[in-house]
Simulated scan of single mutants.
Amino acid sequence: MQRNISNLDSSIKGIKPLNKGFDRLRKNFMAEGYEIVDLLNKPYSEGMNVEIINIIDDCKLNVDEKVMVKIICSQVNFNGVLIQRAQVDIATN
Rank of each mutant, 00 (worst) to 15 (best):
S10Y: 14
S10R: 05
S11C: 05
S11G: 01
S11T: 03
S11N: 13
S11D: 11
I12Q: 12
I12F: 12
I12V: 13
I12W: 13
I12L: 12
I12Y: 14
I12S: 11
K13E: 15
K13N: 11
K13Q: 12
K13W: 15
G14C: 08
G14E: 08
G14V: 11
I15P: 03
I15C: 08
K16F: 14
K16C: 05
K16Q: 13
K16G: 07
P17W: 14
P17N: 08
P17Q: 08
P17T: 09
P17A: 07
P17S: 10
L18E: 04
L18Y: 06
N19T: 10
N19F: 14
N19C: 09
K20C: 01
K20T: 02
K20E: 06
K20Q: 09
K20F: 09
K20V: 05
K20R: 11
G21F: 11
F22I: 11
F22D: 06
F22R: 13
F22L: 12
F22N: 09
F22C: 06
F22A: 09
D23P: 01
D23H: 06
D23V: 06
R24G: 07
R24Y: 12
R24N: 12
R24Q: 11
L25F: 03
R26F: 00
K27M: 07
K27G: 02
K27I: 08
N28P: 05
N28V: 05
N28C: 11
N28G: 10
F29L: 12
F29C: 09
F29V: 01
M30T: 10
M30D: 14
M30G: 10
A31F: 00
A31D: 12
A31W: 01
E32K: 06
E32M: 09
E32V: 01
G33M: 04
G33K: 04
G33N: 04
Y34D: 06
Y34V: 02
E35S: 00
E35G: 02
E35D: 01
I36M: 07
I36P: 00
I36G: 03
I36K: 04
V37Y: 01
V37R: 02
D38K: 01
D38G: 03
D38H: 05
D38E: 10
L39T: 00
L39Y: 05
L39N: 00
L39W: 04
L40E: 03
N41T: 02
N41F: 14
N41C: 06
N41E: 07
K42M: 08
K42Y: 10
K42N: 03
K42R: 13
P43C: 13
P43I: 11
Y44E: 03
Y44S: 04
Y44D: 00
Y44C: 05
Y44T: 02
S45L: 13
S45D: 14
S45F: 15
E46T: 10
E46Y: 13
E46G: 11
E46C: 09
G47L: 15
G47M: 15
G47C: 15
G47H: 13
M48E: 06
M48R: 06
M48Q: 07
M48D: 12
N49W: 08
N49E: 15
N49H: 07
N49L: 10
N49Q: 12
V50T: 07
V50Q: 02
V50K: 04
E51N: 05
E51R: 06
E51S: 09
E51K: 07
E51M: 07
E51G: 03
I52S: 00
I52E: 00
I52K: 00
I52G: 01
I52T: 06
I52F: 00
I53V: 12
I53Y: 04
N54M: 11
N54D: 14
N54Q: 14
N54S: 13
